[in-house]
Design a protein around this nucleic acid. Structure first.
Lengths: 96, 96
DNA sequence: AAGATAATTAGATAAATATCTAAATACAAG
DNA sequence: CTTGTATTTAGATATTTATCTAATTATCTT
């Protein structure tokens, strides 16, 4: 699991807001776009990074592309942070 | 709590490695520097971002400056990720 | 006080990133 | 099969960021 992609993806406020929107259910790209003042092309760029980090999944439904949250990867991210807290033992060697 | 500073700070592999080093106890800047192939000036830049995010604390001890982990902020970060998972209710409105 | 050591700040630069406009692709429907 | 709608990709640009060298600040030691 590339922690680098994961944390990079989480570093941008727009992307975190996208994840927050998806928390309540899947949404087509267009619906997501309505929540942001940037172009759809820019949003698409953010979608790419979120997909690269596997934080979201996509499914084509007709002419729409529906995005949904990959909760397990979010759990992984939280877990990586928790690992930083105590157990030197529970170390899963990880190339940043 | 500026989530932005927090996630930005976590986005860099060098900074995450610094946190990992501090997990096992406080360390002076010089000791930390020995683990990295970059200059102390560059490390200092990373320290600044970690401090800005309040992920680390500093204490001067003689000519050394000792860094230590602020575990509660790491817990906060993990918590912010967990919030993205389910409860729309437990929402603490947050300017990214 | 002077010199040595530890760390930071200042200023510069190269690489990465967020954004835009314009063009391309994919599907749906007349 | 052409037109319209949804989304992505290509290419360009401005900003941010990680890094460096050189200079500065702070403390210790003699």
């Amino acid at each position: 699991m590339p922690a680098q992609h994961l944390f990079k993806a989480l570093a941008d406020p727009t992307r975190r807001e996208i994840l927050r929107l998806l928390r309540d259910g899947s949404l087509p790209a267009g619906d997501i776009a309505e929540h942001f003042p940037i172009t759809r092309a820019s949003l698409s760029h953010h979608f790419n990074l979120l997909k690269q980090a596997e934080l979201v999944r996509t499914e084509r439904r007709g002419q729409h592309i529906v995005y949904s949250l990959n909760t397990s990867v979010l759990e992984d991210a939280a877990g990586l942070l928790m690992e930083l807290l105590r157990p030197k033992s529970t170390e899963t060697t990880d190339e940043s």
